[in-house]
Design a protein around this nucleic acid. Sequence first.
DNA 1: AAAGGAGCGTACCGTACGTTACGGTACGGC
DNA 2: GCCGTACCGTAACGTACGGTACGCTCCTTT
Lengths: 226, 226
Amino acid sequence: MQAAQTIAQEGLEAPTERQRAVLDAALALLVDPNETLTMTSVARRASCSKETLYKWFGDRDGLLTATVQWQAAKVRAVQLPQAGLDRTALAGALEQFAADWLRVLSGTTSVALNRLAIGQAQTLRGDLGRIVLENGPVAMGRRLRPVLEAGQAAGLIACDDVETAFRTFFGLVVRDLQIRLLLGDRLAPGETEIRREAMRATQQFLALYGAGTGQNAHHLQQEGTR
Amino acid sequence: MQAAQTIAQEGLEAPTERQRAVLDAALALLVDPNETLTMTSVARRASCSKETLYKWFGDRDGLLTATVQWQAAKVRAVQLPQAGLDRTALAGALEQFAADWLRVLSGTTSVALNRLAIGQAQTLRGDLGRIVLENGPVAMGRRLRPVLEAGQAAGLIACDDVETAFRTFFGLVVRDLQIRLLLGDRLAPGETEIRREAMRATQQFLALYGAGTGQNAHHLQQEGTR
DNA sequence: AAAGGAGCGTACCGTACGTTACGGTACGGC
DNA sequence: GCCGTACCGTAACGTACGGTACGCTCCTTT
């Protein structure tokens, strides 16, 4: 069992137990504000040699990439049931989705990872930004789209572009929270606040895109395109 | 005229002509993706000595801080007229505001500065994050608040918390644009797209918070607080 | 039991960069 | 005319860190 040990080449190989421990060490360093992630610090914290790090991950960039992907792999799941969709079920699904997203977003890990990716996005070669993007907003959209489409099919949502509807939902949920957290603002919302915000965002979204309630404003979609 | 030349101590002193040129050089380096901002590169580009940089700005951090403040000082202005407010005027003001904000947000300078501030926000001492925050979302809120309050006073906007309304407007305008740009996504919107988005955000905002049209949904405000 | 590899610890190298020091020039005041 | 000051250009220093090399231990395989 020698092959499939180096993560560096392609992100295809799944990390071994030991490698996952190393990646967790890197994550811990990334999150800890009193520490800085260097190859030396990762090796020390993971009780491994730097040589092993380079053997497994190629270089610093490979280690960071593997770390981001490892964290992304952890977050998955959280499936939304969408059978027998009525307005209440749709609202519940959106609400749960928003709350999950806010929880992830305001977590120290997410903040640290986004900072890392943003920091190296200004340089040329930066897969990190793309990876975080892929596992952040894009993944959120991919998971939310079937829900919105189901709502559309059930006549609960009126919009001519699911993508636009998703981005609006994103804005209503996140607002200025993420940029503030990234800039160092201390305002990590508590659980009750998250639930309240998720509810507000959902209700606002349904007020804009919901159909069949008689008080929505879906006519905005047509006007917005001229 | 020896005093008031060092910017390092407090941000009180206004930079001299020559110092402004240095700060512009720093900004240029910051924006250029092919360059990296180092003390040496700033000195070379500004045709000044590093000794002068340290004399004026104390250290690298002081230079960065002065640079961010200098850029912030440039952006000001863009006053919104708010006399004789009716629904059309309010919508126009919001729309212009949103368009201005999108233009700033998607500019290379804003992206570079936010990246810089976010990058160093993970460390302890980071006034940069606070400064950018102060000149970003907070400044936007400060400028928008009187407009919203005027709209409220004129019975055009129904909300029990101007701050919440502002943050919602922020979300509707920015959505996922800023985080995508920061993460390196290429999608800088053109002028026509900015105008369209500003219009959409404004209409959506008025649909949620607008009063007196008979099709708004301001009742959400009460529900959202339980 | 011997051999070999995987991996730990550590010393080491090269480089980038922040910071300091120093020599040289222009200029205003005595 | 001389000194102090401000400034430029550049060399030099110290350090942090990415990357490499090497010796040692332990564990697996035969």
